[in-house]
Amino acid sequence: MSLLRTENVIMQFGGVIAVNDLNIDIKKGELAALIGPNGAGKTTAFNVITGVYTPTSGKVLFSPTDSAGVASEIDISGKRPDKITGLGIARTFQNIRLFSDLSVLENVLIATHLNINYSFLSAMLRMPKARKGEREAKEKCEFLLERMGLIDLKNEKASSLPYGQQRHLEIARALATNPQLLLLDEPAAGMNPQETDELTDLIFKLKTDFDLTIFMIEHHMDLVMEISDHIYVLDFGCTIAKGNPNEIQNDPKVIEAYLGVDEDVED
């Protein structure tokens, strides 16, 4: 069953077509990757999916499952990012976006406010429902920090964490919104080989333990090929290949996009 589909999505800025006729189909429970050379349109595609941009044409269709276990397809094209997050799509960014002066715990707590079910007045008056909600939110955030190996640092400022742990914190914050689909934009960017290996294991465990569908942009091909079920390849905004890791590794169009061709070689 498809959790996320795009239908002929085009994103154009003036005379520049950043994404051209994008058609992806991500199944529930899948770990999919979007790869391509720098400037291929990958982050623009994520921005369209998450409501940062409204597509010039085409549709973005999401099929979340409700509390009764029923999935309904929704056209989320052009919806506000907060509305899309509320429907069950969470995202991390290529450039880490934490509240650097807040604590590790506070960074995650902020994300839970999207799902509060008590009023501002209840919170101000410290009514029982609000106190219960705050307690449950804190317990949930501490659980996520425990899973990320950050619980002992919960009172430290986010800015004091090493780079790799900041990445983990950003993922914890995304998980706090209760996503069904998690979008990771270059999660291994800036990491050393050991941190990348740890992240690879973490992503796989998150997918299994939280029953997540994951869609990621990543340049570390070892990571992509090791854990991806399905891969889409963009080049100059166009999808030039899609398939499993073995198919992608051996696709001539993908090899050409990444390595180029020798112009002196004749056909």
Rank of each mutant, 00 (worst) to 15 (best):
E139P: 01
E195F: 12
R97I: 04
Q249K: 15
I49S: 03
I24E: 06
F13P: 04
S122Y: 06
G41K: 03
S228V: 08
V16S: 09
D185M: 02
V254R: 03
N20R: 13
E263T: 13
L153N: 11
V70Q: 13
S63A: 15
Q194Y: 12
P193Q: 08
G29V: 06
G36V: 05
I116C: 05
E170P: 01
K79T: 05
N117W: 04
E7K: 15
V48S: 03
S2L: 10
E170L: 00
T213I: 05
F120W: 12
C141I: 05
E218W: 05
E195Q: 14
G39N: 07
L144W: 02
T56A: 09
F236H: 13
L98G: 08
S2C: 10
I74G: 01
A130M: 07
G164F: 09
P245C: 05
N8V: 10
L22N: 05
I74K: 14
Q194K: 15
D185F: 00
K27S: 13
L153Y: 13
N20L: 08
T54I: 11
L102K: 12
T112F: 01
S119C: 09
N178H: 14
L184H: 02
R126H: 14
M148A: 12
A123F: 08
K83G: 03
T85N: 12
F210C: 00
V48D: 07
L22G: 01
P245W: 10
A174Q: 02
T112H: 00
